[in-house]
Nucleic acid binder design. Structure first.
Lengths: 131, 131
DNA sequence: CTTTGTGCAAAGCCTTTGCAATTTT
DNA sequence: AAAATTGCAAAGGCTTTGCACAAAG
């Protein structure tokens, strides 16, 4: 479904993509809008939504849903990693998981699935909070 | 965070759980409500939402988010498993992942984390929809 | 000049919440 | 009688859409 041609670039779209790239993490449309507003850019919220949807369609950003249903986006190109987060203090560690990548690919193709994406989140209690 | 005691049973809650169990697949709160309405049961929409949230908290139903952000629920077995979801038709396959369990444990303890929980969701395009 | 993109505000949808009535213990 | 649950409707929050204006080709 990924289109071939990249979307035309405009100042607003560029701003959205840059803001998202700068944080190098998942952010909601509203968060991106706020980042831009704080930075003095007057990009409208609707434009942020339209831009993110557009880029998601073209595969330039990854999209995901948080538990509360809000859509979050990340500029996709950097290496894929997962998060290990402490449920007590919120500390997070980024971890890479080639094993997981391989396993998901294997399982999925075993069931005839293609064009994969996956989310893995690990929550636990960190050493500092366990005491 | 799963509570110890199961929720008290009421006719409405039982109806919700039965409707969900009957389809043996993921359904949104609104869909469950419609199923009940069609079946002549006058359970309110708010009650359906409350019931599903309650059971999700107690681990009796699995919850997920569709791409459009709607929450979907499914009556769930006790064993821990992951889901392979088709982004096009919504078909789901339950998969077990001892490899993932092991990997998460290893990574977490390596970083000093304990008392773990994790979520893994794989989305892709199933064979039927790939054509 | 025609086409595409943007802003703003209104509308849509899913979900949650306040509150009185009802049911259960 | 006290506590928990339900239903209805209103409110909330995220997202999309209609439309006029601005920008781009």
């Amino acid at each position: 479904m990924t289109s071939t041609e990249p979307p035309r670039s405009t100042p607003q779209r560029q701003a959205v993509l840059e803001a998202l790239g700068a944080v190098d993490d998942f952010r909601s449309a509203q968060q991106v809008h706020e980042i831009l507003a704080t930075a003095g850019s007057g990009v409208g919220l609707a434009t942020v939504y339209r831009t993110l949807a557009l880029y998601a369609e073209h595969g330039l950003v990854d999209t995901l849903r948080r538990e509360d249903g809000e859509a979050i986006y990340r500029r996709c190109s950097e290496t894929h990693h997962h998060h290990l987060v402490c449920r007590s203090c919120g500390a997070t560690v980024e971890v890479e998981g080639p094993a997981v990548e391989r396993w998901t690919s294997a399982i999925a193709s075993e069931h005839g699935f293609s064009d994969l994406a996956h989310t893995l989140e690990i929550v636990g209690t960190c050493a500092a909070c366990a005491g």
